[in-house]
Nucleic acid binder design. Structure first.
Lengths: 243, 243
DNA sequence: CGGTTCTTTGACGAGATTCAATGCCGGTGG
DNA sequence: CCACCGGCATTGAATCTCGTCAAAGAACCG
């Protein structure tokens, strides 16, 4: 048990403050949110399509994604989530989930009753504003994904995905460029880029061959950040975080 | 000049009320928003990447889209917009535009100074809430687009795009299924689906051949809604509007 | 160690792009 | 009112990227 465990809301607060100002009362209100925390294994479903959620899911540790299955065939991942993300804020508009939420690594989550968040937003407009901004950033990322999947070729698509992920992880203070460990398998990368895992493999091998990536066992790292960025045509402006 | 012209905010108010409750004071506040209206031709840029917007753009008549150009080559359209849509609500978070906004038909827009919208949100929380919900719906549409472009084949992709567009136009009360006229060229459809206009043409010819679409001169209409829906695997739940 | 999951390799096939031309519709001006 | 012009749609053939099939090898887990 380290100090992070006693404040499940630390990363959330830090993220919101990167987007918009909060005052002490706002931070306290967030910290007093009712919640229960759970540990879940990798590949666990946190929420399934058609479920009616009664709690918001705040990711505290580990990585997760949102995905849809196309008639039991191919899967499309539409977003990745980091510690500090509320995974289903869209649940603000009461509705059955229209996608699956799944961990990609072992994770711990905090479950917050709907009414807790609703009261927080009602009584703390600055928090509401920051959460709204967070939704806007998510939407900007989604627009970039449409572009990525729609118009880039396989190599650039994968490179762009990696650039975005690494930038987000770094901005969240979870790792540095050198120490970043990619938690996703080639299959997951394929599901996020609209490619088959086999083709992902070919492209990643090619990027290793030219020295952009290096591998250590199953662990892939970025060897040439400038090269990766160039391959992706990556411009981080849409992520709205100072480099 | 018909009665619609005198209330530029009518469609916006109607859309917001489909998402969340407003009271009389809210509606009045919207109607009193300062604005100037402009007529613009088809294919006109309303905002370009890197512009710093000072006014929100409310679409009053006609159709528009949001797009990005990939290194002066292929274009990706990431959303279509209907009358009643505010085209750059993300401008709530002050930032240079990261995409282009362009009309696809002749259109009329209302330009609303930033501070007008900001004051409206500050003083009318129900309006803020409805606008937030509107952002959530937009995000749901974007997630569906990622899936569309990432995992469906060309025919299903085009069919899905048409289903979504028609459903939105109908829900907004702009036309009925029978009377709908598609305002986009095959090139525009290609830019929205990540396909070349030539391939769009082949797929649309195929759909005409099996009786899903019919053409009258340059005007394409839907002849077999059930068939189109089936070809697309379309489920309108994500649009959050009662059928 | 043994089994499972993830990664890798090679050959082949399909769907989409590209290239090259032609045809059609609709608007404009003589 | 008709002829021309420009944008949009259409067609066919060649090419290429990515997907599919089949199988084996490497890494991690207990």
């Amino acid at each position: 048990m380290n100090s992070k465990d006693v404040d499940p809301f630390g990363r959330l607060i830090r993220k919101l403050e990167r987007l918009s100002r909060l005052d002490d009362a706002d931070r306290d209100a967030i910290r007093r949110l009712p919640c229960r925390t759970r540990s879940v294994p990798a590949q666990a479903y946190l929420l399934r399509e058609r479920d009616i959620p009664t709690e918001y899911i705040l990711l505290i540790e580990g990585y997760a994604c949102r995905s849809t299955m196309l008639d039991d065939g191919p899967r499309q991942i539409v977003s990745f989530h980091l510690p500090g993300d509320i995974l289903d804020l869209q649940n603000l508009m009461p509705h059955a989930a229209d996608q699956d939420l799944q961990t990609i690594t072992p994770a711990t989550v905090a479950l917050i009753p709907n009414e807790g968040i609703h009261a927080l937003i009602r009584e703390h407009p600055l928090v509401g504003r920051a959460l709204w901004f967070d939704c806007l950033v998510d939407a900007a990322i989604l627009r970039e994904w449409v572009l990525n999947v729609g118009r880039r070729d396989a190599r650039a698509r994968i490179a762009h995905l990696l650039c975005e992920f690494v930038t987000r992880v770094e901005a969240a203070g979870l790792a540095t460029l050198e120490s970043i460990h990619l938690p996703m398998t080639q299959e997951v990368i394929g599901d996020a880029t609209g490619l088959t895992p086999l083709h992902v493999n070919r492209m990643m091998s090619a990027m290793r061959a030219v020295g952009i990536l290096i591998r250590n066992g199953r662990d892939v790292r970025i060897a040439d950040w400038a090269g990766l960025r160039a391959a992706a045509g990556f411009d981080p402006a849409y992520l709205r975080q100072a480099a």
